[in-house]
């Protein structure tokens, strides 16, 4: 035994070393094919899946942001247009109001002037008619006074004749 120990330190056996290497190479190949590669490829596939999901979500987010910006732009344009229209409508309404007011004023003036003219005409006509009636009454009264004997009777007749048109 001591001789063997001196010949091969720690009893290293190169044949067994090679057997260990062969054993490990077989183990390496087996583990690589059966476990490492499939698990790693699955993890890679999952990573790609989630990266794709992330990319899709980002793309959708970007598209949504673009749409939002476009909608906001459109909304701003619509607001501006509505404001313009509102101002135009206000202007038109103000113009229309002014026009109508002018027309109404003119009409009112016309009505007033017509009324005044009619009133003047009616007044003149009434005055002339009253004058005629008064003249008739006066002449009738004068005739009656002249024709009647007593003065008091004539006076009563005059008063009756004068109150008759007022009652009518």
């Amino acid at each position: 035994m001591p001789l063997q120990l001196a010949a091969v330190p720690l009893n290293i056996d190169w044949q067994q070393v090679l057997l260990h290497v062969l054993n490990f190479v077989i183990l390496f190949a087996g583990l690589w094919l059966l476990l490492y590669k499939p698990v790693r490829s699955f993890m890679q596939k999952r990573r790609e899946h989630y990266e794709k999901m992330d990319a899709d979500a980002n793309a959708k987010n970007a598209a949504a942001e673009e749409k939002k910006a476009a909608y906001e732009q459109k909304l701003a344009a619509a607001d501006a247009e509505a404001e313009d229209k509102r101002r135009a409508a206000e202007r038109a309404a103000a113009d229309y109001e002014a026009e109508k007011r002018a027309e109404a004023d003119a009409f009112a003036k016309q009505v007033v002037s017509d009324a005044r003219r009619d009133a003047a005409q009616i007044k003149a006509q009434a005055v002339s008619e009253a004058r005629g009636e008064i003249a008739d009454i006066v002449s009738e009264a004068v005739g009656k006074v002249v024709l009647e004997d007593s003065t008091s009777e004539a006076y009563d007749q005059f008063l009756d004749a004068a109150s008759a048109p007022a009652e009518k």
Binding site: Q15, L19, N23, L27, G30, L34
Partner: peptide
């Protein structure tokens, strides 16, 4: 072939690991 017990252990460990890997696969 006379070998150390460690080599038998190595073969046993390899067998265990490969069977486990095959079942998992």
């Amino acid at each position: 072939l006379p070998v150390n017990p460690g080599l038998i252990s190595a073969f046993s460990v390899t067998a265990i690991l490969l069977v486990f890997a095959a079942i998992v696969r």
